[in-house]
Nucleic acid binder design. Structure first.
Length: 374
DNA sequence: AATACGTGGGC
DNA sequence: TGCCCAAGTAT
């Protein structure tokens, strides 16, 4: 057997135990109180975690900040207090309530997952990794997070926070994502089998509040003593990352066909309605309410493409462009409006009250609709 | 293994 | 302004 190189950072058992103890002690004093979280003092008061509420928080928090996700979490729980309620809700309503949170596959999977848990599983989330991992929208991280936070069973959570904390603690010179397997091993070796739920939440809190990406507060860190990145004098250099490719620009056009508000007998007043469509599942913004429009291409739509994407033949008025930055490209979207003749019946789409429609749409289309109606 | 997939806030 | 970053998953 090849000898372990002396640069191998794997901590010895007693070192791991000391790290655990220091982190848990810090968490007991400084860990965050979050609405879905059951802290040690909560447990002492007899409060137990609701796996449904924990699952909901974990899905919402994927690649999403706590301040952004929190109001959505409250709203979902108020609307659908149990997994059965969520499963019974129309998917369209779930998508509308998710509007603005991003990564809309999460909402589609959320509803599908609720259906499985409510139906096949009788309302009970699995407590084992394989059972959790098999559910739609639950991957490696989320399965471990639910197992730890909802069931307080042994798990090892590795999210962006943990990757940063571990990379710094051991000053890993291998850049992400290549270092992920090593990070997983180190994180698993440190995880606390006695207080798995608290430990998992503690190491993520540490990354979120102390071991921050740009401005770590090493003076407040329970691991500053053993931290190799701190010892190096330049902790912010970690984790090293592969540089990413430039973001291309794509262009497209959308059409806001407006049916002016009118009363029951045709008098003025009442809310404007706008023609909306639902984007197909699977692609960008899949399953979400949208304005009709062209495809998005590098060169942008020509006049022919634009004309054929118009919901009706009408006097279309150019209102300007909105710019929207997605993860892997920037979109410049031309916005056109037209007033619909009273008797028009477009082939596709539905008329929605403009205000309600805006709330139910992804941010991109909210911007476009705002410009269209300005 | 690499890429698609949103959004908003910080600096 | 532009880039980085956030409790990742699916394919």
């Amino acid at each position: 057997m090849r000898p372990v190189p002396d640069t191998d950072p794997m901590p010895a058992a007693d070192q791991a135990a000391a790290l655990r103890a220091a982190l848990l002690d810090w968490y007991d004093r400084e860990g965050r109180t979050l609405p879905w979280r059951v802290r040690p003092e909560d447990r002492a008061a007899g409060r137990v975690a609701d796996p449904y509420a924990v699952w909901l928080s974990e899905i919402m928090l994927q690649q999403t900040t706590v301040p952004h996700a929190t109001p959505y979490w409250h709203r979902f729980l108020a609307l659908w207090p149990t997994v059965h309620d969520l499963a019974a809700a129309p998917r369209e309503q779930v998508m509308a309530e998710w509007a603005g949170l991003g990564y809309y596959a999460r909402a589609r999977n959320l509803h599908a997952c609720a259906g499985v848990v409510s139906g096949e599983l009788g309302g009970a989330f699995p407590g084992d990794l394989d059972g959790l991992r098999a559910l739609p929208g639950i991957g490696d991280y989320t399965a471990n997070a639910i197992r730890a936070a909802a069931f307080d069973r042994p798990a090892s959570v590795v999210d962006g926070n943990v990757e940063r904390v571990i990379s710094r603690l051991f000053a890993l010179e291998t850049p992400l994502p290549k270092s992920k397997p090593q990070i997983r091993k180190l994180a698993a070796a440190l995880a606390d089998p006695q207080r798995p739920g608290d430990y998992a939440q503690a190491i993520m809190d540490l990354g979120a509040t102390v071991c921050a990406p740009r401005s770590p507060d090493c003076g407040a860190c329970p691991w500053s003593g053993p931290c190799a990145a701190r010892a190096s004098g330049d902790p912010v250099r970690f984790p090293l990352k592969e540089k990413k490719r430039p973001k291309p620009v794509r262009r497209g056009a959308v059409f806001a066909l407006v049916r002016p508000g009118h009363g029951r007998h045709g008098e003025k007043g009442g809310a404007d309605h706008v023609l909306s469509v639902t984007r197909p599942d699977g692609g960008l913004l899949g399953g979400m309410r949208a304005l009709p429009g062209t495809d998005w291409t590098e060169d942008g739509p020509g006049e022919d493409a634009r004309a054929s994407a118009q919901p009706i033949d009408a006097q279309w008025d150019y209102r300007g462009a909105v710019r929207h930055v997605f993860t892997h490209f920037t979109l410049e979207l031309d916005v056109w409006t037209a007033e619909a003749p009273g008797d028009i019946r477009p082939d596709e789409g539905e008329w929605l009250d403009a205000a309600a429609m805006s709330k139910a749409m992804p941010t991109l289309y909210r911007k476009a609709l705002t410009l269209a109606l300005a």
